[in-house]
């Protein structure tokens, strides 16, 4: 018997969830961009530990935001508002 395919539910583009996904994506890009900027400053302006620390922290926060974004999408699947 042929199994019926279920279509993925469309995300309401004007919901808080959709806006949150956009925001987390922008924040993740900022984190990695800022990390690259801080690393460039560290390499060009001499070994300032502040720049290296900021680079490491921003890359870590970028990774953290990706993990959070995946968790958020998974968790809110149980909330029936889409």
């Amino acid at each position: 018997m042929r199994q019926r395919r279920t279509l993925p539910r469309r995300i309401d583009p004007m919901s808080l969830k959709a806006f949150h996904i956009v925001f987390i994506t922008a924040s993740t890009l900022l984190s990695f961009g800022f990390g690259a900027w801080a690393l460039r400053e560290y390499l060009s302006e001499g070994a300032s530990p502040t720049n290296l620390t900021m680079a490491a922290l921003s890359v870590a926060s970028g990774v953290g935001l990706i993990v959070y974004g995946r968790y958020f999408l998974k968790k809110l699947k149980t909330v029936g508002y889409l």
Partner: peptide, 28 residues
């Protein structure tokens, strides 16, 4: 002061996460 601006950015990102969590809590 870039470190201070960075802290402020992190503060706002955190607040966006908590505002969504607050809304999701009501949904639940």
């Amino acid at each position: 002061n870039i470190p201070i601006g960075t802290v402020n950015t992190l503060v706002l990102i955190t607040s966006s996460i908590t505002v969504v969590m607050a809304w999701a809590s009501l949904k639940l």
